[in-house]
């Protein structure tokens, strides 16, 4: 096949180029066009002159991201939370996906799939209300329970030590339905004859999962991990801002880059400074992804993203 000339390939493959056209067009309009607007990060916006004619200020707009000890704290939090979320999120997602696909009764699959997807459908603000229903000092359900058990109340919103666990739980709680479905769709696609012949060979369920399902899920897992690594410097604003109810005493364990930027710019509506934050997060993510992809390419080239 390699022998054929380039023009020959093009002639043969033109329908494939036609197919990708609408999607690429959309990406150029929706993503690449606006990407050109990143220059805003290097401007001081003067509305009377317009965006382009505003004065250039170099890296001035980036400085606030690296100011004082807060920078260290928020970067540390962002990275650590992401690492935990990637690992636990993948593990629980794969487990849930496998379990759902192993259910034998149709209504059970329907029921469990629908139910664990529910949290994903709620907006963060509503999740925060629900969280408050459980954790509120005055009227919270958990403190009510602790009281009736004779245990001392906990002032959840003023106890930073508890929040790494709460946030991790909430994040998995909300995302589990989604990732379970991603994995389920891969598992369902697996050729069933593989399992049937394994069963004939007397392989136990655990062995089937260990030697058939998991290896076949590997490409999906690697892909999802590489993509999460690209978002390493991002954090889900709703999770880190709304769920802790913006409580100041919790900043040491809840402040991430996104919440810091939001709070910093709340009173100053500065699009240049917020673009700078996005630019910084993207660049770091880009470098991390290239590195991760490079490592994958070295060890198992067929799983690399590009």
């Amino acid at each position: 096949m390699e022998k054929r000339s380039k023009s020959g390939t093009l002639k043969r493959q033109w329908p494939l180029y036609v197919m990708v056209l609408p999607g690429l067009l959309y990406l150029f309009i929706n993503n690449y066009g606006p990407m050109a607007g990143m220059f805003i990060a290097f401007k001081r916006i003067d509305y009377s002159k317009g965006l382009w004619a505003s004065p250039w200020v170099g890296f001035e707009n980036f400085k606030y991201l690296f100011k004082t000890g807060a920078a260290l704290e928020m970067t540390r939090n962002t990275i650590l939370y992401n690492l935990v979320f990637i690992v636990l999120g993948e593990v629980t997602g794969i487990a849930a996906g496998i379990m759902l696909s192993e259910l034998r009764r149709k209504w059970e699959t329907k029921f469990f799939q629908t139910v664990i997807l529910l949290p994903y459908l709620l907006s963060w603000v509503i999740c925060a209300y629900i969280g408050y229903a459980f954790l509120s000092r005055e009227t919270g359900l958990i403190n009510g329970l602790l009281n009736s058990l004779g245990i001392n109340e906990v002032d959840w919103y003023n106890d930073p030590g508890k929040w790494p666990f709460i946030l991790t739980f909430v994040n998995i709680w909300k995302g589990l339905g989604y990732s379970a479905i991603v994995y389920m769709s891969s598992i369902i696609g697996i050729d069933h004859s593989l399992y049937e012949s394994a069963m004939i060979d007397g392989a136990t369920k655990w062995k089937q999962i260990r030697y058939i399902t998991l290896p076949l899920l590997k490409p999906t897992v690697i892909m999802l991990i590489i993509m999460s690594i690209g978002r390493m410097f991002y954090s889900d604003f709703g999770l880190f801002y709304q769920i802790p109810m913006n409580s100041g005493t919790l900043y040491s364990t809840t402040q991430t880059i996104d919440t810091y930027v939001y709070r910093a710019l709340m009173t100053r509506n500065d699009i240049a400074m917020s673009s700078a934050a996005g630019f910084y997060q993207s660049i770091v993510g880009f470098i991390l992804v290239l590195t991760a992809n490079y490592i994958v390419r070295k060890s198992s080239p067929e799983n690399a993203m590009f």
């Binding site: 929706n30 993503n31 690449y32 066009g33 606006p34 990407m35 607007g37 990143m38 993207s282 993203m305």
Partner: peptide, 18 residues
């Protein structure tokens, strides 16, 4: 080209203008 869009975005202002 597809993957790159997941890493970078121009933010709301340029999108809005577009």
């Amino acid at each position: 080209i597809v993957f790159f869009t997941m890493l970078f975005n121009g933010g709301i202002v340029p999108s809005y203008i577009m």
